[in-house]
Design a protein around this nucleic acid. Structure first.
Lengths: 161, 161
DNA sequence: CATTAATAGTTGCATATGCAACCAAGTCAA
DNA sequence: TTGACTTGGTTGCATATGCAACTATTAATG
């Protein structure tokens, strides 16, 4: 905490705290971390697992590839999450009749129960958060985040860090 | 993609795509992933390393603990990032005179150079992104993200996922 | 002082992830 | 049909991370 950072000789200096990717990460981590307690502690699920489950819960049966497309999660991540969820008896696979490479994934009853439980908590969590932010803002932010998510990192392949 | 998901019997059903933590993550990942190319490809840095460096670059010399407080990054993560940056000759340590447990971290000249380079790119990246979003919005979103980051997940310890 | 309770950092271990290589089923064209 | 190419998924390996346990130093308390 000593010397004042030297100003960049040419333009303004870079300010981490105004850097959108940084802010987004902070915000994302804060919320995820907070909600993660639910699926981690109670169901021993990973974030990816929770996401896969949520997608299946929301959109119904579909193939791993579909999940990748929809959620922008990497192939291998999905593959492993699916394996784990299956092992837990939360989802089941069925080779697609049309394409024997593909596997149709669907939640089991147990899986649906978990989805409903976590879904409820998620709704509550989300509501509380938006409450604190103010509805108007919360609505706007949705739009912006969607935009960023969609085109913020165009050209690049999916998958987390 | 078969059966329509059964509506939750009680309240509305949970919609992943409207879930703030989810949206934040998507957005954060999209941007981080995009910008990460800079520090990863050119300097072989990890995101954590880049953040630590950015903090030191912005705020000047300080202790690892300070970095933790400021950036909300976990202890061990910082410890390792520091070790790595040191190995690369980008920062140097000096045991604090007041407290021999603490180490004062500061960027070396090389480190400052890297910071300036990446900082420039970050500025450019950020500007382009905000451009696409529209300045007005971008300003607002900053506020909201800060709020979320600050209190979105209060009560919880730092660290990623 | 002597003991006990923090605190700054590091390290071991188990897990999650990214990437590239790989297998198997499909497609396309000669 | 055969051979080249694409595509749905999985796996091996190296790396990044989280958590808990640990060292060294300082603070607090008797």
């Amino acid at each position: 905490m000593n010397d004042v950072p030297k100003q960049g000789e040419a333009g303004q200096e870079f300010d981490l705290e105004g850097f959108l990717p940084y802010l987004l990460n902070q915000a994302a981590e804060a919320t995820s971390r907070s909600f993660q307690a639910s699926y981690k502690a109670d169901y021993g699920m990973t974030r990816t697992q929770w996401r896969v489950l949520a997608n299946l819960g929301k959109f119904g049966a579909m193939t791993a590839r579909d999940i990748c497309r929809i959620s922008h999660i990497e192939k291998t991540k999905v593959s492993r999450a699916v394996a784990a969820l299956e092992a837990e008896g939360l989802l089941s696979r069925a080779t697609s009749p049309e394409d024997r490479r593909a596997e149709i994934l669907s939640l089991t009853d147990a899986g649906r129960r978990v989805f409903r439980d976590l879904g409820q908590r998620a709704l509550a969590y989300d509501a509380a958060l938006r409450e604190r932010l103010g509805q108007a803002f919360a609505t706007q932010i949705d739009m912006v985040l969607r935009m960023i998510a969609a085109q913020g990192g165009n050209d690049l392949p999916p998958g987390d860090d």
